[in-house]
Design a binder for these strands. Structure first.
Length: 202
DNA sequence: CGTAAGATGAAG
DNA sequence: TTCATCTTACGG
């Protein structure tokens, strides 16, 4: 496993969103290490009505304008956190939202963090995986490129898989943009896309 | 399936 | 002040 460098993130956001599929999130928690493979991402661009950065820099979204490889963790719906990686150049407010991962290591810890009946629901949503990995507002704005960081993005041997490109979900503005990407790997921990899209179009 | 949980920023 | 939101869990 090798840590991803700044050059990986300092590129057009859509490219980074695709490249992140199949890479790994490594979270060092007090109780042990948790590793997950990224299987679904979404790109959020500066010129994008659905992006927090669309109306310019605010106190909340300021990490998005920071340099590539910074984390952006936002609190939403009054109770959940979502985890993004800042991309592109400094002062461009763009990021990739991690929407789903597949548990690789530390599954017992994940189960402890997530008291849900079905294993399938452990990490198949942006706020679910932050709960599973123990990500909270303390992780907002930290540098993910440091070996010592409690949260890192790593790569392992290359796998072959298909990248599916679709519309984004869960938002009303800019939802027609094909900025959502997921990996067709094992399929076990994938979100049921047809069901979610039906819900969104309603 | 419908809805509550309730922080945040933008608009009024 | 009011409204919509990059969501999830739970009850019918």
């Amino acid at each position: 496993m090798k840590i991803l460098q700044k050059s990986f993130f300092r590129e057009p956001t859509i490219e980074v969103a695709k490249k992140l599929l199949g890479k790994f999130i490594v979270s060092k928690t007090p109780k042990g290490v948790i590793v997950g493979k990224i299987v679904e991402t979404e790109a959020y661009l500066q010129n994008d009505p659905a992006s927090h950065s669309f109306c310019g820099k605010t106190n909340r979204n300021s990490p998005m304008f920071d340099s590539a490889g910074t984390s952006y963790v936002y609190f939403t719906y009054g109770m959940y956190y979502c985890f993004n990686v800042v991309t592109n150049k400094k002062n461009i407010g763009e990021a990739v939202l991690i929407r789903a991962i597949e548990p690789i290591r530390g599954i017992e810890l994940i189960k402890k963090n997530r008291k849900v009946p079905k294993n399938k629901d452990l990490t198949n949503g942006p706020a679910k995986l932050t709960l599973a990995l123990g990500i909270n507002k303390n992780f907002n704005g930290i540098n993910l490129l440091d070996e010592k960081s409690p949260l890192k993005l790593m790569k392992d041997k290359v796998e072959n898989f298909e990248i599916i490109e679709t519309k984004r979900i869960g938002i009303s503005k800019g939802c027609k943009m094909p900025y959502r990407f997921y990996a067709k790997i094992s399929g076990k921990h994938q979100r049921d896309c047809t069901a979610v899209e039906a819900h969104n179009s309603h």
